[in-house]
Design a protein around this nucleic acid. Structure first.
Lengths: 351, 351
DNA sequence: ATACCTAATGAATCTAATT
DNA sequence: GAATTAGATTCATTAGGTA
């Protein structure tokens, strides 16, 4: 328990195989945010996430990265997770200190918080940087384990996982979330399975609710966790005591690919399968509509999605636009559903 | 044709709506890479991607970002694409210069190059940063068009698109790829559709094969492209000349409620759609108020606009009175928003 | 036991026009 | 330029209650 920067000085140099760090993001939030239903969003406004300036954040970042660097073995690697608020600064400083970036990994959230005001893209991911202490490090990468986890093809730099909710999310006595930024165990598990060996020592300088410790114990790794908050330390200890070391294969969560991934009509335009301005008709050419650049249809009867316009022109309540609308190819009318299949086959490899 | 940093000085300040930049990535490749079948990977080893140090790359980055910042309108936005080699440095410098990050966007490649040596995760994505010139900018974001493109739900910060191959990839006389890092048109199209309006001016300081220009022309945007290499300039010019602008009616994209004309509640009274003295209730008849001749509401909780009284009776901070308040018509409760639509259609007929 | 409805919530740099 | 007013805005998932 304590501040990681002075505390890490007490550890011997070159004693740690890997670092996983989830530092403050420096969110710089101003004012309150409400959902459309008027409820207040519970923001991360803790003291530990407040910094006076980018300069202050940079100095903090440099200090903890240097402290981690000292305790890392020469072939060790370091992971840092962050968002666009801080990850660019962290990445640049880490390069300046001599770390060598091996990959940046995107955590795609299946269930992110939406953008309530409709003024930006839904912030649906976070970024992790994986770096070795030195450019010539002989780091650990369990290539085949990762490939096996990914259905027999190489693990990519984008990982699709849900955020930490439900029973996994630690609660306080009042039933409220114990820690504002608890990470899912599946995320840390993939980190440790990819870049550490059984028996390795993993250091987490911002231990929080102890996810790294719990996962390390389950996966047969040793860990060192540093945390300033007494309450978090106690909760983490209880959590880790309750964690059962499990067989690794039990932790591998198969992603459960959806049988038929959803395809937006606009994807056909983006793939060049349909041109903006193209004319769609029903199978008997009784109804027609024009394709617009954003993937909506326009007809004299109205404007909207392929389904909505299909329903409108027929005077029906609903319509499956994929089978209703056709496009002329080589003199023949073909349902746009056939084009959707082409996109699906491309996406299937990625899902 | 020329170097963007001096060339941008000749443009008037505040003259550009958006910047899309695909700068050198500073890949720092050493030695050759062969595929498992012994074939040589055609690496990006061009002179323009060589920098002496991180410091040299940072100075270059700061210079072109500053030049772009000068020519951007105050409400303009800037996009930069990069990989883990350079994007952290670009992002940090951009923040230091006062740009305000709006999103980081992950381009997930459906068909990335595999990792041939099996020593890292497949590098399957690139990162784009979208930033406004200033924190308080009133930037363009076509929220409803993006939502329409994404099958009716908010567009997320991760976009899944194939890399540029096949017929779209420009070739030289020898049939070899003309440019080593040509981006797919679908990627740039989504950038321009999301954050620019028809008729806007888009600047690309690293024009390369002219993808930004070709897409801008197709989508009815103006563009300025700067490129040092004479060969690329010629190829880009030919490509853009061949690009067909989309039909104007296809360019119209989905606009939401925000784009519709404002209607004062008093206009409903003036048109006889609501009588002074009429009783309004919420959808569950839990709250009620009376309409006064000047278009204000009166309830036991207070008096004022439809929005203010709606908020007051609920004890909420804000309220959209148009959707909150209902009026009884033919035995059924109908939101007053429906009456607003009648006024709007009358206004449209006159306009 | 199942289906259906309502409520809650998550690392968020979250408005725009008029007075 | 500051203050005020208008009014637009959410997705996936879990949990719990009711029919």
């Amino acid at each position: 328990m304590g501040d990681c920067i002075p505390l890490l000085q007490s550890l011997p140099a070159g004693s740690v195989d890997a670092v996983f760090a989830d530092p403050p993001y420096n969110l710089q939030l101003a004012g309150n945010l409400h959902r459309p239903d008027q409820s207040l969003v519970d923001a991360v406004d803790d003291d530990w996430d407040r910094f006076e300036s980018f300069g202050a954040y940079d100095a903090f970042t440099r200090a903890w990265l240097l402290a981690c660097r000292r305790v890392l073995k020469k072939d060790g690697t370091l992971w840092v997770i962050g968002s666009y608020h801080n990850i660019f600064r962290v990445g640049a400083i880490l390069q300046d200190l001599g770390f060598w970036i091996l990959n940046d990994i995107v955590w795609r959230k299946t269930n992110p918080m939406p953008n309530f005001r409709g003024r930006r893209f839904t912030n649906a991911h976070e970024t992790m940087i994986w770096a070795s202490r030195d450019p010539d490090a002989r780091y650990t990468f369990n290539y085949d384990a990762m490939k096996a986890m990914n259905d027999g093809v190489q693990m990519r730099s984008d990982w699709t996982l849900p955020i930490c909710t439900g029973g996994e999310r630690l609660k306080d006595e009042g039933g409220q979330k114990l820690h504002p930024t608890q990470k899912p165990e599946a995320l840390i598990a993939r980190v440790l399975l990819s870049s550490t060996k059984s028996g390795d020592v993993v250091l987490d300088p911002f231990f929080g609710s102890g996810t790294t410790g719990a996962v390390a114990r389950k996966l047969g790794r040793h860990f060192i966790g540093v945390e300033r908050d007494r309450g978090y330390v106690a909760a983490a200890q209880a959590r880790i005591d309750a964690a059962q070391p499990a067989a690794p294969e039990a932790l591998v969560t198969t992603a459960g690919k959806r049988a038929e991934p959803r395809v937006a009509f606009s994807a056909l335009i983006e793939r060049g399968l349909i041109e903006p301005g193209a004319r769609l008709t029903c199978s008997k050419r009784r109804h027609a509509a024009t394709v617009r650049v954003d993937g909506t249809l326009h007809s004299s009867a109205g404007t909207g999605s392929i389904h909505k316009v299909g329903a409108t022109v027929q005077g029906a309540e609903a319509c499956n636009g994929w089978t209703f609308w056709h496009v002329e190819r080589e003199g023949r009318l073909e349902p746009i559903d056939a084009l959707r299949q082409i996109v699906r086959s491309e996406m299937a490899a990625v899902a």
